[in-house]
Design a protein around this nucleic acid. Structure first.
Length: 286
DNA sequence: AGATCGCCCTGCTTGC
DNA sequence: TGCAAGCAGGGCGATC
């Protein structure tokens, strides 16, 4: 499942292979892939045709392709299994090809949105004066954004009546962190996922943010990691790297710090992996 | 309004 | 062997 590092790898690929090109034609092969484009696939294609693609941008797990000549952008979310591929025009269609974008040039490559589980999609939106698609105005800056405000995050964390992993996955507080990297950052911070955010001290928040950034940077350096072999970067090269994770997916294996078996617990229709010794369950405040 | 929960989707794995 | 259930899970809308 692509998280921030994987999406950034895709963004860089698009910057290299798609920026500056003019859209000639769009084929929407599955309506669900454009469900966020309310006017539908026909309208999506018509509005893109003839426009030049600008510099691809990213916030958290969203990325978008601004149109160079007007304040709008093609917003993309990869969901669970989405891929943006730049393929030769004569390459056979992928089994789960959902959208094809052809360009008005002689490079003989096209952009393809491929998505097995169809949690992802493309849509066209007006951009704010800051260049942000209007529908993602509620998405917080991500921790690799130079303008991410650590102090404001700390205050927001303390105001919330919630627990730390919920907060890390709340894209309106901090974006780009998914289930895998949340568990990794919590393991490094020796924090249990159910620890209430209310009692967080400034140093504790600072340490956690540091680990979040480290985990994301390391994954980005490795080229993005994912347990889902479906994930492929913009050129179709596998983005699956053997980076060893410390908590996620390691149920029953020894904690790399203390040797205790890592546990998996059902949590919010997903799983949380943690070391029961390093990451103690917080005492319930009554 | 903040917090919680169910649903969307497909293919692989597990269990009876 | 065959079928059903479980699992992966981001984001959003409904609900309280």
């Amino acid at each position: 499942m692509p998280e921030l590092p994987e999406v950034e790898v895709v963004r860089r690929g698009l910057e290299r292979w798609v920026s500056g090109r003019i859209v000639a034609d769009v084929q929407v092969l599955h309506p669900r892939a454009v469900r966020r484009h309310i006017a539908g696939g026909e309208d999506f294609g018509a509005r893109l045709k003839g426009h030049r693609i600008g510099l691809p941008q990213r916030r958290g797990k969203y990325l978008w392709l601004p149109l160079a000549d007007q304040p709008s952008a093609v917003l993309a979310h990869l969901g669970m299994s989405g891929q943006l591929l730049v393929q030769p025009e004569d390459a056979p269609d992928e089994k789960h090809l959902r959208i094809r974008v052809r360009f008005d040039d002689t490079l003989n490559t096209e952009l393809r949105f491929v998505d097995q589980r169809t949690f992802g999609g493309l849509s066209l939106h007006t951009t704010t004066p800051e260049g942000l698609p209007d529908v993602i105005a509620h998405i917080a800056r991500d921790p690799l954004d130079p303008q991410f405000d650590d102090a404001a995050f700390h205050e927001a964390l303390r105001r919330r009546r919630t627990t730390i992993k919920r907060a890390l996955l709340d894209q309106s507080l901090i974006s780009g962190v998914g289930n895998i990297y949340a568990d990794e950052a919590l393991w490094r911070s020796r924090l249990h996922y159910e620890r209430p955010t209310t009692g967080f001290t400034r140093p504790r928040t600072a340490e956690l943010l540091g680990h979040v950034r480290d985990v994301l940077y390391e994954a980005l350096t490795a080229g993005g990691t994912s347990f889902d072999s479906l994930y492929v970067n913009v050129n179709g090269e596998s983005g699956y790297f053997d980076r060893s994770l410390d908590a996620y997916g390691r149920e029953g294996e020894p904690c790399r710090r203390c040797g205790t078996a890592i546990r998996r617990r059902p949590w919010m229709n997903r799983s949380s992996y943690f070391c029961p010794r390093c990451q103690r369950v917080p005492r319930v405040a009554s």
